[in-house]
């Protein structure tokens, strides 16, 4: 912890922890607070997704004489986008490992690759949605499609948000390097990114695989 306090005096921007030099709690306590706070945000996000999963589980069978999952979903494309997210998870892990070695270039490289996989996932999702809407399977068509677009769309919006955050983080890293604050940001986005991959497991299990099977 002493090495970070040596770096601290060079501050070109507003730090989120102006009080961390005074008080006997020290920096350790504060660092715990930020990561734990972000974790609790993720848990509340998890509840949002849980409610959307419950809505889909209840309404997913109400086709209103419209198309059913087996008519709409192309599982090979879903498998590809699943692997896009999985690859982006492992490359984010590599970025964190590079960051632990204080290797800025390696961190940036792996984060860019992560962003590439994230954008590929989003591109596949936009293709799928536009294909469905082109077929007439719009959110208005049935309760199944309303809950489907709501659940999968919310996950997609999160991935979009994470990708925008990733771009901002790349700018921050390239301007300031691996400062204490930037490392904390990388770890927060790491939690967020792996969390989105975890939610996607539920989406492809419940919506796509079970939907096509039954």
């Amino acid at each position: 912890m002493t090495d970070t306090t040596v770096k601290e005096p060079v501050q070109f921007f507003v730090t989120e922890d102006p009080h961390h030099h005074d008080g006997d709690h020290g920096e350790h306590h504060h660092e715990t607070g930020t990561m734990l706070g972000f974790w609790i945000y993720l848990m509340s996000d998890c509840l949002i997704f849980g409610i959307l999963f419950a809505v889909y589980a209840v309404l997913g069978g109400n086709y209103a004489a419209g198309p059913a999952p087996v008519d709409l979903f192309e599982l090979d494309m879903i498998l590809v986008s699943t692997f896009m997210l999985l690859f982006s998870s492992i490359t984010y892990g590599f970025a964190v490992l590079r960051m632990d070695r204080n290797d800025l270039k390696g961190t940036l490289l792996w984060l860019v690759i992560t962003g590439g996989f994230g954008v590929a996932f989003l591109y596949l999702e936009v293709l799928e949605f536009s294909h469905l809407i082109h077929l007439g399977a719009t959110p208005q068509a049935s309760a199944f499609l309303s809950s489907f677009f709501f659940l999968v769309g919310t996950h997609g919006m999160h991935v979009l948000g994470g990708s925008i955050w990733l771009v901002v983080l790349l700018i921050q890293l390239s301007q300031r390097g691996l400062t204490h604050e930037n490392k904390r940001r990388v770890m927060c986005l790491s939690l967020f990114w792996h969390f989105l991959d975890l939610i996607w497991i539920g989406v492809f299990s419940l919506v796509y695989l079970t939907g096509v099977l039954l």
Binding site: E27, D100, M187
Partner: peptide, 20 residues
């Protein structure tokens, strides 16, 4: 990074096991 936080980052091996 403190030792405490470092302990939570995992290693190359653990990431690869998780991936496989």
């Amino acid at each position: 990074m403190s030792d405490h936080a470092k302990g939570g980052h995992g290693s190359l091996k653990s990431y690869l096991i998780g991936f496989v």
